[in-house]
Write a protein that binds this DNA or RNA. Structure first.
Lengths: 181, 181
DNA sequence: TATGGTGTACCGAACGTTTGGTACAAAACT
DNA sequence: AGTTTTGTACCAAACGTTCGGTACACCATA
């Protein structure tokens, strides 16, 4: 199990249990690594694991979301491409958002800066697409915020109602909602 | 400190830290009661505290949201009244949602049934208002889900961006969004 | 009116367990 | 041979929980 493979498993624990619920026992079990091995890869312990996981997500976002949004297709197509990858990373709405999970409790102040950056990068990239589609800057920003907001809310509702159809519905209508005149 | 006064303090801990983050030390400090004293009111411990807190919320919702939605005013006015109390309980978007916090991690399976009930009661009451306003049943349900979804998403975004204006915006436009033809 | 009994509210200290973290030698790989 | 990886054994601190006990208001009986 390489470090990168381990990180992928750590993600699923952090985003299911949050920072405080992600105990070393759970992290160890998920990765199949003993505590010694985890501390070999992450000498500063749990906090470094969470940081690594956040960095991994940041890279993923850049490659699988931001790059697409900056692409050369029609705005409508770029947003649809984003939707596909959003649907994938959240496992059709079954999995919680890592950013949301790490912004609660005592982990909030630990990772808030990085979380805010990632969130803003996403919103800004999306707003830029809308500007290119002809919307004015302010309105574009509001609509982009709205899109992320609806995705996050859909994930919360999907967990609370045990039903991912709200999430599917949000993703479905996202392109039209964002680009409507 | 009466039991009801204690519960009010417990709520703020559970909704800030979640179930696993809400340690007995924090709960004790928030209520001003010793750890042992908490067991006087809640013999079954932390799980009973969370249950009590959820029941308290359920009553609050019935009295401060559902009752208003079942009221006799115009649909537009009832929804606005709901918005006022929603804004109040979430402290203008500063405070997280207890239901969302208790539906993560290991607390999910402990409280899922009750959380689902409360959420559905809210959605159904809101949908009923929309039906009375002339919408067909299916569309009413979708829009009601959408409202709760946007509120939850706004709370997540407010925490992540450290900015409650998205939450304010969602509440502002809620009546018009729900009732538009 | 005094006396003894009962229930409620609360707390300090300790319980056994789990937490995040460390030390180190054996093992596995290069 | 030398480096990387890992299992085992630890640790202090914090975890949720329990125990024995105090303080005090209430209420019956004498």
């Amino acid at each position: 199990m390489s470090k990168d493979e381990a990180i992928a498993q750590l993600i699923s624990v952090f985003r299911q249990y949050g920072y405080e619920g992600a105990t070393l026992a759970r992290l160890s079990k998920a990765t199949g690594l003993g505590k010694a091995s985890l501390y070999h890869y992450f000498p500063k312990g749990k906090e470094e694991m969470a940081t690594a996981v956040l960095n991994h997500l940041s890279v993923w976002l850049e490659e699988n979301i931001l790059a697409l949004l900056r692409g050369s297709g029609k705005p409508d197509e770029r947003i649809r491409a984003m939707g596909k990858n959003v649907n994938q990373i959240y496992d059709q709405g079954e999995q919680a958002c890592l950013l949301a999970m790490l912004s609660i409790g005592e982990s909030h102040h630990l990772f808030h800066t990085q979380i805010q950056q990632v969130l803003n990068a996403w919103i800004n990239a999306l707003a830029q697409v809308l500007v290119e589609a002809g919307l004015e800057t302010g309105e574009a920003r509001l609509r982009a915020e709205d899109a992320i907001l609806q995705i996050q809310g859909a994930l919360v509702l999907a967990r609370g109602l045990n039903d991912t159809t709200p999430f599917q519905r949000v993703l479905q209508r996202l392109p039209k909602d964002l680009l409507k005149p």
